[in-house]
Design a protein around this nucleic acid. Sequence first.
DNA 1: ATAATACTTTAGCGAATGCTTAAGTATGAG
DNA 2: CTCATACTTAAGCATTCGCTAAAGTATTAT
Lengths: 110, 110
Amino acid sequence: MLKYESQLDGIFRALADPSRRAMVERLTHGHASLGALAEPLEMTLSAVQQHLSILRDAGLVSTEKVGRTRMCTLRIEQLDLVDRWFDDRRAHWERRIDRLDAYLAKGDGT
Amino acid sequence: MLKYESQLDGIFRALADPSRRAMVERLTHGHASLGALAEPLEMTLSAVQQHLSILRDAGLVSTEKVGRTRMCTLRIEQLDLVDRWFDDRRAHWERRIDRLDAYLAKGDGT
DNA sequence: ATAATACTTTAGCGAATGCTTAAGTATGAG
DNA sequence: CTCATACTTAAGCATTCGCTAAAGTATTAT
């Protein structure tokens, strides 16, 4: 899956900005309009929309127009990709710990 | 903890680049010199060193000079900060699911 | 001492980021 | 229809990013 790696690029990049993380955090509490997401952030609506685009490109947020408001929803299954990457890293790391344990046990001939 | 947020900035940004993720992945298998980290990456040693600086600034990697080689080590405990952030998000998300369940159960008067 | 190795530092460059302002469009209220 | 609301789009701009080339320094080999 060549796409997996480039998806991670987008997800990590999206989460690297504090304003965007704040938006994600807000969305874990439920749907929100663009205006609602923008309200606590000290920047123009235009800037917030650009952040939203990055979150949408990363697949972290989906949006839908309802009347004249744009409703945003968090796509948690996309966050799971990050979990997956961390689990894979941990697998190698923990195998290393296991080997270290084995090595120490072998030398430990009390 | 004001530092926590800015630490996350650095960590997520560091992981947003595929070359840097490759370096982290390599380091989960054990220590490695700068040259060893650079070998599979198609760029100059100078570029790899700049990536290493970003990983070091993010607290993900520590280094030590041994003779004329620079040995690099992964700081897994720094990766745990990301886990923590995800767990916090999940806590809210899962509470939302719980409330949805409760709401559906209430309306389900069979 | 000389040379090779393994980095290190600095300057520079094109592209991407994170904003802003200004001028749109579409929808709902009166 | 008129006006306010809620976004949307486009242009511009300073900064940061990812990279290279070139010229260092420090350590080990011969």
